[in-house]
Design a binder for these strands. Structure first.
Lengths: 228, 228
DNA sequence: CGTACGATTGACTGTACTCAACCGCGGTGG
DNA sequence: CCACCGCGGTTGAGTACAGTCAATCGTACG
């Protein structure tokens, strides 16, 4: 029995649009793993010999400055891949936010497979293009948005992402800590906390049990995300 | 005679590592163009029917907020490509900073060619990976660096990029305006100007004729770029 | 029950922003 | 010919937004 053939998240990821024979070949080179929350998958500068695919949970990517300042460059969820290399090394550290399950692909084998299956190469390229567009949105956020706009954009991003994966888009599940949110948005934990309180007081959101945020006034959040 | 065969910047770009026959096929679908400074190549949201390759000059990419705030997401130079699409549309506006020369590839034809030449697909993917890594560096800069660190990082980036293209790395040619630099680094023109003055006063740089910046104390700039 | 850690709130500070004036230069037209 | 204008850049004064430092709260866990 082919595990990839039965994979429920296949349509979201690199493996979409492969035929059964190709999926079998893919399954041959892949390992699956379950990783607890707060574990480091790899660190910036490590030899990049593995490509990962997130099948469940949330993973964060970050870069550090010598004095410890941190920038989280992305939160990855079901269907996202990680492990792209520059000069054979990872350009960032990857750490699980929640317990996560992953597929691991040895780089050499996946490279060989991509030469054989241009469809897959193409799919990976298209996903990288989307990543690039998301990165540009994030630059706009980091460089030009206010704290309130950043928080609202963040909530909307989580909501839209959940919707695209067939989950409820409201309330939004926010598994990451205030510190992680701060390091993703270029803020401090205090400012994140204050801004949540502000939105709560204004009646735009309310915080619920289990790290959920109910967006009670979606239009207001939408407007505030873009500075309207 | 094949124009691509004689192209002096081929090694820097997508067209590297194609054999003569492949280059001929590429030349068949490409148009070259010369564009004056300050012209818009395309705008965010336009139908993305063309891929570009910069062969000379500098091009900037940017995104706007509804109220006009602008974030420049990249300055492209010789060898860089632009025009990656999400949902068939461009995700940013592209405008020339200096007079530039470009190769234009109709998207449909280049897509077809990439199916035929996996080498080229692979090369484009590898360039997109590098872009992605650069974008992550830029997020770290925008989210976590001070004004002085941003300016120093910017000068170093220009210097290293010039070196990689076989130009003199010092003095650095800085063709863009203070406003463009500000919108790239998430600052205002005033802060950019003040920070240059500060570095000048500290003896780390000096401004020269023709938009050139001489880095007189490279080590100091290097340290200041990372907050050491 | 006590500790530890994340989140929240408060008081104060500082970096970069805003608003404004001024400089230098190149182009234009009276 | 040169006075005027416009534009990019620089400098100055005052402000505000987010950061820093610190105290407190709540809760999960040993």
């Amino acid at each position: 029995m082919n595990p990839c053939g039965a994979c429920p998240v296949r349509s979201l990821t690199v493996c979409a649009a492969l035929d059964p024979e190709e999926l079998r070949r893919l399954a041959d080179i892949l390992q699956t793993a379950r990783v607890e929350a707060g574990q480091t998958l790899f660190s910036e500068g490590d030899a990049a010999d593995t490509l990962y695919n997130v099948t469940a949970g949330t993973v964060k990517l970050y870069k550090l400055l010598p004095d410890g300042r941190r920038q989280i460059t992305g939160f990855l969820v079901t269907g996202d891949f990680l492990g792209l290399a520059v000069n054979e090394s990872y350009a960032y550290t990857a750490e699980t936010v929640t317990t996560a399950t992953l597929c691991r692909f040895p780089r050499k084998k996946i490279d060989a497979l991509m030469d054989e299956f241009p469809k897959m190469q193409r799919r990976l390229f298209s996903m990288a293009s989307n990543e690039l567009a998301a990165a540009q949105d994030q630059m706009l956020l980091l460089g030009r948005k206010t704290a309130k706009e950043k928080i609202c954009s963040f909530l909307l991003m989580l909501s839209q992402r959940a919707a695209r994966r067939g989950h409820k888009e409201n309330p939004v599940y926010v598994p990451m800590s205030r510190a992680d949110i701060a390091d993703y948005l270029g803020l401090t934990t205090e400012t994140v906390s204050r801004t949540f309180t502000q939105l709560k007081t204004a009646g735009a959101i309310s915080l619920q049990e289990g790290n959920k945020v109910l967006i009670s006034d979606m239009d207001a959040i939408y407007d505030m995300a873009e500075g309207c």
